[in-house]
């Protein structure tokens, strides 16, 4: 697949991207390198993996990271109940070696996302979400999978990948990741979208919503994000929810009152509401080109 074909597939998947992102994805695919995506919460990092799965027509296998995540939740676990039952059933067997071999065979192995992704017959897209939430030990454990495309299970040995998954790791930079992990990955940083890109996303995802309303929503979100006083910046998903909600309410104009009443879709704590009140108390007089002379509070 060349760069243009990848762009076409992403277009078909309904994803709004820029040339930089398309090139980075193409490079990661070509080199077979895992892709590490960093950026603030809600800029669409996870969405990249979903879109790649759709674009490449592959299954998406997702591993959500959290503190305390270990191999038994990420890689494999033995089905202890089944093993114990098997021991009971075969209590009188004489060949204990055969029984042991049988107990540690595929039949008793519970696949978790990482093992599933490398044992799949067809290549998959493996999403390791919020890797910064996992412990450092888990990060080190991932290195073998990321660089050698294999994992080691003590009772069985090394399992090599049947098909090479396209690995996407995401991080909110809650903690710095190790150099060893970074070196094995292609790197992409995603910022919040600018006005034009956000408007394109709104148009593409919510084609039924009035274009003027989309522009007003996009502009209001841009303003909220640009304010340093806003603690939790609105994400793209929240922008979409907001626009959809306004449309569902039959609102055609984002006035100051409507903004205050429905801002709960994008602002999620009281301090941010107070900032919004202060921003509305000092209305700007200039007009924007996107909404035909409408003045924003």
């Amino acid at each position: 697949m060349d760069l243009e074909q990848l762009k076409q597939k992403m277009d078909q998947a309904g994803y709004v991207y820029d040339d930089t992102m398309a090139t980075v994805l193409y490079v990661a695919l070509t080199l077979g390198r895992p892709l590490l995506i960093e950026g603030a919460a809600g800029v669409g990092k996870t969405e990249v993996a979903k879109v790649m799965a759709a674009a490449l027509d592959r299954e998406l296998v997702r591993l959500q990271c959290y503190e305390g995540l270990d191999e038994s939740k990420a890689l494999y676990e033995w089905n202890y109940q089944k093993q114990l039952l098997s021991i009971q059933v075969n209590m009188n067997t004489r060949d204990s070696d055969a029984l042991t071999r049988q107990l540690f065979s595929d039949e008793y192995l519970l696949e978790r996302p990482l093992l599933k992704s490398i044992r799949a017959e067809k290549p998959v897209v493996l999403l390791i979400d919020e890797i910064d939430k996992a412990d450092e030990e888990f990060e080190a454990f991932l290195l073998e999978l990321l660089s050698e495309q294999q994992v080691t299970i003590p009772e069985i040995g090394t399992i090599k990948a049947k098909s090479v998954p396209f690995v996407v790791l995401t991080s909110n930079r809650a903690r710095p990741l190790s150099e060893a992990l970074r070196r094995r990955c292609a790197y992409l940083h995603i910022d919040y979208p600018d006005m034009e890109k956000e408007l394109n996303i709104l148009r593409k995802k919510l084609p039924h919503v009035d274009d003027r309303l989309c522009a007003q929503v996009a502009l209001a979100v841009q303003k909220l994000r640009s304010s340093e006083a806003i603690l939790k910046k609105p994400s793209i998903a929240e922008t979409l929810d907001w626009a959809a909600a306004l449309d569902a309410l039959g609102i055609r104009e984002l006035t100051a009152d409507v903004l205050r009443q429905t801002a709960g879709f994008v602002l999620k704590n009281n301090e941010d509401f107070q900032v919004l009140d202060e921003m509305q108390a000092q209305p700007e007089q200039h007009h924007c080109s996107h909404c035909q002379g409408h003045s924003h509070g």
Binding site: L3, D19, T20, V24, V27, L31, E179, R182, A186
Partner: peptide, 19 residues
């Protein structure tokens, strides 16, 4: 030029600071 720059940046830089 820009495509080459982005592609090489993806290969060589592994953090925002390195970019």
């Amino acid at each position: 030029r820009e495509t080459v720059k982005t592609a090489l940046r993806t290969v060589y830089a592994s953090s925002r600071e390195e970019q």
